[in-house]
Amino acid sequence: MMEPQLITPISIGDVVTKAEQAKKDGKRLVQIGCTKIEDNFEIIYVYDKNYQMTSYRITVKQDDEIPSISGIYFGAFVYENEIHDLYGIHVKGINIDFKGTFYKTTIKHPFSVTIVKEDDTCQNK
């Protein structure tokens, strides 16, 4: 069995300070991921040092604006553009902002809506 994983809930305002703290502690950014839970969106920031993961969770609504941590971790821009394109959450101040062209999708913000392909006969609905 692997170690249990704790995800600490924080507020939107703490995102940047926690990122700064993580960088000071010599942690690397592992990933930023988003999940839709009913009407809310959970964004999880994961940092790692010596295979010990530290995770922070924020809960936001659609069209909320979250601060970018790409000023602290340059590589965060890929995750932040992804969150913007797939979920429609605005991220303020990304260093390389694709402005919604990172993923070209048929449906705008596909992960924020329920999708049923009407014209397809063989699918589980």
Partner: peptide, 8 residues
Amino acid sequence: FRECYNVA
């Protein structure tokens, strides 16, 4: 992948 939203 036929049911994926981005696959035509």
